[in-house]
Design a protein around this nucleic acid. Structure first.
Lengths: 227, 227
DNA sequence: AAAGTGAATAATGAATGCAAAATCGAGTCA
DNA sequence: TGACTCGATTTTGCATTCATTATTCACTTT
């Protein structure tokens, strides 16, 4: 066996990866038309695999296909926010429960490290590094849960909600609340209290949705002022 | 406005509907190769929309695309069963909680009717009608939860697990257990006890997974005997 | 000037074409 | 008999073509 694995992939799959990245990075913005021809040139492919990728992303809920008018980046409505986040809460809650049942001592220790790091960034008010540690903790919980189906569905929902989650500007009170949630999470995890951790994660998600709604309200108010 | 709405749909979408139906009905069986050419003839379409439908169904987890070897109906492994069902449990649990918060008196009454009907079918040992009522109850809970995202993800998981769920032959003890679960569900729903209903539904799903594992064990044992 | 009209242009959706890869099968050899 | 070869055939992935549907924009009408 040679070390380098022969990765045989389909073009449409690689394009799908590229498009997902563009959506997450905001190069393609919600509601915007997806420029098929331009993307074909940019990726150096013909329309066939590009359009196949569109179908796949549409099935994932990232694009909306309008008959005879091509593809549009899916736009999240307030109603969908109200639907998506509780689902994410239930899933992350499950991840927490499974993690408590399966996690090793070493991984708990690693999460504690991440948590302490995150707390330091909070103290210093360093937002970007804070988010990085924060995300690492949530990812570590899913990793410990060891459920690929769960992770992939959750990841999909994260991607779909990317634009609205990113719109949030945490107030000091909200930020403190989030850190407090994380303290409780760590305690539950160290006590291997599955139901407890599940409850905290669902609660954490409920706080998140409130922040998102606040952000959407603020954004809409700003838009109304402009017009 | 005329009564007949002009439904403009994409070909690949209609094909996807048709393929999903074939998979659910067992016309295409897990592990089987999906005959592209034959399906093109059957649906009266060219390869392009057929292959687009394949990509969409693959994104849904219903098909597996093997590079240079076309599409295969996704086959559920025991490990995936162990991953999929807890996720379904968490989602149906959420549906129960939401339903308790939102359901109208009339809908509760309808579910009670369905439940009593189902109980009668159980008493008489009529399996097919029992399953019909059973499914109607679960669907009614999702309807009451009024969360389209939740419903569509759950529906997708139902489809993906179709083959293994269908393999289950309930023992009398298991059947009694299921009916008891349903009694508890109705009680929780009538009391609008969201957390309680959530717990019962997760428990109900845990029972389901045990039945599925039993069925898979039996199937594998039978297969081993044959070889 | 604003609203309407229709020809020219662009885009979309689906069928077809073509090169590369996989599969099949007759023939060969151990 | 069973494993192997290698050319023929089929299948697959992607590019290209073609018909249909939107969109644009110069032009008319009020």
């Amino acid at each position: 066996m040679s070390g380098t694995q022969i990765v045989r992939r389909n073009l449409h799959d690689e394009i799908a990866v590229g498009l997902r990245e563009m959506i997450v990075k905001g190069e393609l913005r919600p509601g915007e038309k997806v420029p098929e021809a331009a993307l074909c040139i940019r990726f150096g492919v013909s329309r066939t695999p590009m359009r196949e990728a569109f179908k796949a992303l549409a099935a994932e809920g990232l694009l909306t296909l309008v008959p005879n008018r091509g593809a549009v980046v899916a736009r999240i409505t307030r109603e969908e926010v109200a639907e998506l986040f509780p689902v994410m809460g239930a899933l992350e809650g499950l991840a927490g429960e499974l993690a408590c049942a399966r996690i090793t001592e070493a991984k708990v220790a690693r999460i504690r490290k991440l948590h302490e790091q995150m707390a330091r960034f909070y103290e210093r008010g360093e937002i970007a590094p804070y988010y990085r540690s924060n995300r690492a903790i949530h990812e570590a919980i899913f990793e410990a849960a060891d459920n690929a189906v769960l992770s992939s569905i959750f990841q999909n929902l994260l991607t779909r909600t990317n634009s609205v989650r990113f719109a949030v500007k945490k107030s000091p009170a909200r930020w403190a609340e989030a850190v407090a949630d994380h303290e409780a999470m760590l305690a539950a995890l160290e006590a291997r209290d599955g139901p407890g951790l599940g409850r905290i994660l669902r609660e954490h998600m409920r706080h998140k949705i409130e922040m998102v709604i606040e952000a959407l309200d603020a954004r809409d108010a700003a838009e109304r002022r402009r017009s």
